[in-house]
Design a protein around this nucleic acid. Structure first.
Length: 750
DNA sequence: GACCTGCTGCGGCGTG
């Protein structure tokens, strides 16, 4: 090949090239070739590619070459790598060790599990690369504010791994704010940021997340790894009974006297037998990830598949993996997936979605439609990495039995339709964007406290400029920030106080909060019991899900009896047993995007056939379309049902909740359920009249509407917001009053 | 109708 341009490889420094030779690589990967010139040039860069496409090296090979060229031996860290997971830091440390040795660059892990003397040593003689979490970085800024400029003045670049995991979250706001604070403290206008991200529908979102306010200037490097293709299937199953709960006044079903024990009956209602039979048949003997959707489903599913394994006298190959299981149990599963050739299926929640190194799997399965297209995309990328093996994802969806007289929501098979809509959005290369309007006031409270601690005090105008003008809190104007400061200083909070010369200081209430190590993360966790068998901790269980000694529970895919509960020590002791009830975890539903629900309507309206549906799912979709026509939902979106009315606005969760609120404000008994709103004791005409009023009136004030909504303290610092500020947060982030007239108009003329 | 993530400094104790 003749090429006047030097290849990426030729432009790397000598030690880096030597390391590549040692690895016996035949060539650089596509994403690495593209990233090298972009990073050598300087400036902000987003590198996006599938997990394990070599993004880490794509960033570090040219960055280490830049360090080599610099040849200054000034004090301070040269590269800062920020990761959302400790486990990922440990993985990356393993991966980068030999490369850094080759380049004679110090590599330091820095997170909560790293001993404090390692950190002390690094602080004393800062150099090379630090791998750190946002929380540890926050702690460093807050506790060692005076050292920040010394530690970071010679930073060549900051690398942010799993950038997509930070986008649109409170933790992402904190991270952006911390990076901004480092730039300000070191007097550097911009320190190059390199974001590593999974492929997203719209890469500009990642660019904007990397450099808020100037995403346009970020260079995008997209890995053009053709992969080995994708095999995708949606499989239909039948539930044993309808899903819409019967009305309170409906006659109770007679006790069934078959011999299924009650606990198995509940398990069967979550996971039909035909589905577990197929899951077993299709996953057995291979390496799989099975995303079950919730921790309860993980337990029920792992328990069922493990029992099938035992019944057939096969060695066990099914293992549960979720956030309430102990670190040791989870690591065993991860290690087995990565290093053990035996067949293994990890039944997991989203825990195995991010980039923890588990090697390649043969296939991915998912139960139910899932709640986002973004995670569907991530999951597919977990398989099909070896040449000749396409990525394989099977979605297993159960719908209620078909009954013409049944509830319309059951007749429409909405879970199946949603699964199809998700796949169609994925094929169209669309994926959920973050909500732009967020105020992120709780995190702004946190960052204001952190800033005061970092500098030992700060003037209100300085804080505003640093956090809201230069920093990421750009939806907060001067007036709102002043309100927030007043709220923080109020008698009920005393988070801050102001000295005679106007400097903001930590108040008595603030001291208590900021002195605890609990201060650094911006998210909360509920209090929990530890579940212990003999000396081994199996995991944790929420305090507010009562259990009693003698009860049974499925946990870690096994069945246990509770022997003892120590409320003071928060320990639940268990021993193995033969039966078990599914555990109970609390969760708040996820929000589904407008685009997905709109696509659901399109799927129901059209007569397109989808190649990826199995026979049963195809038939179920036909039945759903038939019901859609019979209910005349192709022509109208407001239909009578029983003593009430059903509304189908075909909008996402946020707008659906907003309309429900607006109708409650107009004295309707309204509740949203499964993409629709059910109104009881009213007539179609009455509802149509009200919708006309809403359509013709100007959009109501979101703050007034939000006043009718329960405002539970969800984010960590919500409890410090005044009712007025809390209402504003709800109005901006949780509802969408602006769009109400339009939703009402669309309901009247679909 | 859901999931996940993270943590300092210091005092006290045991061990080599």
């Amino acid at each position: 090949m003749t090429n006047s341009q030097p290849s990426g490889f030729d432009r790397l420094s000598r030690p880096v090239r030597q390391w590549i030779w040692q690895q016996k690589w035949q060539s650089l990967r596509d994403v690495q070739e593209k990233a090298i010139p972009a990073i050598l040039t300087g400036g902000d860069v987003v590198i996006s590619a599938r997990t394990a496409a070599g993004k880490t090296e794509a960033a570090f090979l040219p960055l280490l070459s830049r360090l080599e060229a610099k040849e200054t031996s000034a004090d301070g860290f040269a590269l800062l790598y920020v990761s959302p997971l400790k486990a990922l830091i440990n993985d990356q440390h393993r991966r980068l060790e030999s490369l850094c040795e080759c380049c004679d660059v110090l590599l330091t892990k820095w997170h909560g599990d790293v001993s404090s003397n390692v950190k002390a040593r690094a602080r004393k003689r800062p150099s090379g690369i630090v791998l750190i979490t946002p929380e540890s970085l926050e702690a460093l800024l807050v506790r060692r504010g005076g050292e920040v400029s010394h530690l970071f003045s010679n930073l060549e670049a900051v690398i942010i791994d799993e950038l997509h995991a930070f986008i649109g979250t409170e933790r992402g706001m904190q991270m952006q704010s911390i990076l901004n604070r480092i730039e300000v403290a070191t007097g550097r206008d911009r320190i190059d940021r390199i974001g590593l991200s999974a492929t997203l529908g719209d890469m500009r979102l990642a660019a904007e997340a990397l450099r808020p306010g100037d995403g346009e200037a970020v260079t995008l490097v997209e890995g053009n790894d053709p992969g080995n293709g994708v095999r995708l299937q949606v499989r239909g199953y039948l539930l044993e009974r309808p899903t819409v709960p019967p009305k309170a006044d409906a006659p109770e079903e007679p006790e069934s006297d078959n011999d299924i024990p009650k606990e198995d009956e509940f398990s069967r209602s979550l996971l039909p037998k035909a589905m577990s039979d197929d899951l077993f048949r299709l996953t057995r003997g291979k390496r799989n990830l099975l995303f079950a959707g919730s921790r309860v489903n993980v337990e029920v599913c792992a328990d069922r598949l493990r029992n099938m394994c035992d019944d057939e006298r096969l060695p066990q190959e099914f293992f549960a993996h979720h956030g309430s299981l102990s670190k040791a149990i989870r690591e065993d599963v991860e290690t087995r997936l990565r290093d053990d050739p035996r067949p293994t299926t990890a039944v997991a929640t989203t825990t195995l979605e991010l980039g923890i190194d588990i090697g390649d799997v043969d296939a991915v399965a998912q139960i139910g439609p899932g709640s986002s297209v973004a995670s569907l995309r991530q999951r597919i990328g977990r398989s099909g990495r070896r040449t000749g093996h396409p990525a394989t994802l099977r979605m297993f969806v159960a719908v209620p039995p078909f009954d013409r007289g049944g509830h319309p929501l059951d007749r429409l098979r909405l879970d199946l339709v949603q699964a199809i809509a998700m796949v169609e959005c994925l094929i169209a290369n669309w994926c959920e964007p973050p909500i732009k309007a967020g105020l992120h006031l709780p995190t702004l409270i946190h960052q204001t406290l952190a800033l005061i601690l970092q500098y030992g005090g700060v003037l209100p105008a300085q804080a505003f400029k640093l956090l809201c003008i230069r920093g990421p809190f750009r939806n907060v104007d001067r007036e709102l920030f002043a309100d927030l400061l007043r709220c923080m200083a109020s008698d009920s909070c005393r988070l801050i106080e102001q000295s005679g010369n106007g400097v903001l200081m930590i108040g008595s209430g603030g001291e208590e909060i900021t002195e605890s190590h609990d201060f650094y993360p911006v998210f909360t966790t509920e209090q929990e019991y530890r579940i212990v068998h003999e000396t081994r901790t199996l995991g944790t269980y929420p305090l507010n899900s009562p259990l009693a000694p003698g009860e049974t529970i499925i946990f870690s895919g096994r069945r246990w009896r509770i022997v003892d509960i120590d409320d003071r020590a928060r320990v639940i002791a268990v021993k193995p047993t033969r039966t078990g009830k599914p555990p109970h975890f609390s969760g708040r539903g996820g929000a589904i995007h407008d685009c997905v629900v709109d696509t659901m309507r399109a799927v129901l309206c059209s007569s397109d056939a989808y190649q990826y549906l199995d026979q049963q799912a195809t038939r179920q979709l036909d039945e759903a379309r038939e019901s859609f026509g019979e209910l005349q939902l192709d022509r109208k979106s407001v239909i009578g049902h029983g003593q009430g009315v059903l509304l189908f606005p075909w909008v996402g969760t946020r707008k659906l909740e907003t309309l429900t609120l607006a109708l409650i404000a107009k004295q309707f008994k309204a509740s949203s359920y499964h993409h629709s709103i059910e109104l009881s004791d009213c007539s179609v005409n009455g509802v149509l009249e009200t919708l006309e009023e809403i359509a013709d009136a100007p959009a109501p004030d979101g703050v007034v509407l939000a006043g009718n909504l329960a405002q539970p303290a969800l984010a960590k610092f919500d409890s410090f917001l005044s009712p007025e500020l809390m209402c504003r947060v709800t109005a901006t982030e949780r509802i969408d009053a602006e769009s109400l007239p339009e939703i009402a108009r669309d309901l009247l003329e679909p």
